[in-house]
């Protein structure tokens, strides 16, 4: 593929690093800025700039260049390389992971564009194998869908794409305008209401099918209540939660 995604402290820096990687010049590529970098304050809130650079037409040197530079890292050579190259090499150490995240971002951005969402911005947070992508757009409702359906579908597909590029297993979580947090709150409220209903009627209360992490929120919310028991029944994707009152 004659296309790479590159991060850097500024857009300018990312572009020049990408050009160095592709061993080409600016007039031979198409540059697409994915995220604008932010300086931040005292290191807080700083964000890396991200650009996608596509070679207009040239030999595919990307793959080769990358494997070579990774090898250079593993063999600790004392010989000094050109400063510019050194920079590229350093960036490549964490590149498979960054690349996976970048590819995922590009994937989401492309899909969003097809859904007529042009103002999408993505912030990444990473904690071990958990990668949280926070999306922002004016048309957030389209991205979330009914009860988060669209968002969950997009999350699932993003996870597949991310793991296609990463050499280590990644868990992708997508969030739009704090939807997950709001959903968690409403699930907890729902859980309490349903638990009360189970006690009041003395009968089992069944939920509609939900994805695993939403069931987990309910199990967790009700784990401290001693008057009821929660169990999940059925197989995914139709697995649902049941609250049983204890006598």
């Amino acid at each position: 593929m004659n296309q790479i995604t590159q991060t850097g402290t500024t857009t300018e820096e990312a572009i020049s690093a990408a050009l160095a990687k592709l061993e080409t010049t600016r007039d031979q590529v198409t540059i697409n800025v994915l995220t604008e970098g932010k300086k931040g304050f005292l290191g807080f809130g700083s964000k890396l700039a991200e650009v996608q650079v596509t070679l207009n037409e040239a030999p595919p040197v990307v793959q080769e260049a990358e494997t070579v530079s990774v090898e250079t890292v593993e063999t600790p050579t004392e010989e000094t390389i050109e400063p510019l190259q050194e920079k590229v090499v350093l960036k490549n150490v964490e590149s498979t992971l960054d690349e996976a995240v970048a590819e995922t971002k590009a994937y989401i951005t492309l899909i969003a564009k097809e859904m007529k969402i042009d103002d999408l911005t993505i912030h990444t947070e990473q904690n071990g194998k958990y990668v949280t992508l926070r999306l922002e757009s004016k048309k957030a409702a389209v991205l979330i869908g009914k009860r988060g359906q669209t968002l969950n579908a997009l999350q699932q597909l993003s996870q597949l794409v991310a793991n296609k590029y990463a050499n280590q297993f990644l868990m992708i979580q997508l969030d739009v305008e704090n939807y997950r947090e709001r959903r968690q709150e409403s699930l907890e409220q729902l859980a309490e209401r349903m638990a009360d209903k189970a006690i009041r009627t003395g009968k089992k209360v069944e939920f509609e099918p939900m994805p695993s992490y939403e069931r987990k929120v309910i199990h967790n919310a009700l784990s401290r209540r001693l008057d009821i028991e929660t169990v999940s029944i059925g197989t995914d994707p139709n697995r649902y939660l049941v609250i049983e009152p204890l006598k």
Binding site: V142, T150, N152, A153, L154, Q156, D236, P237
Partner: peptide, 24 residues
């Protein structure tokens, strides 16, 4: 297998996105 997925999971995700885009 890749586009269908385990229990049709991927196929379902693809449809969900296409339907939501299509309805608009």
């Amino acid at each position: 297998g890749k586009v269908i997925g385990k229990q049709g999971r991927v196929a379902k995700a693809i449809r969900t996105i296409v339907y939501s885009a299509a309805s608009s």
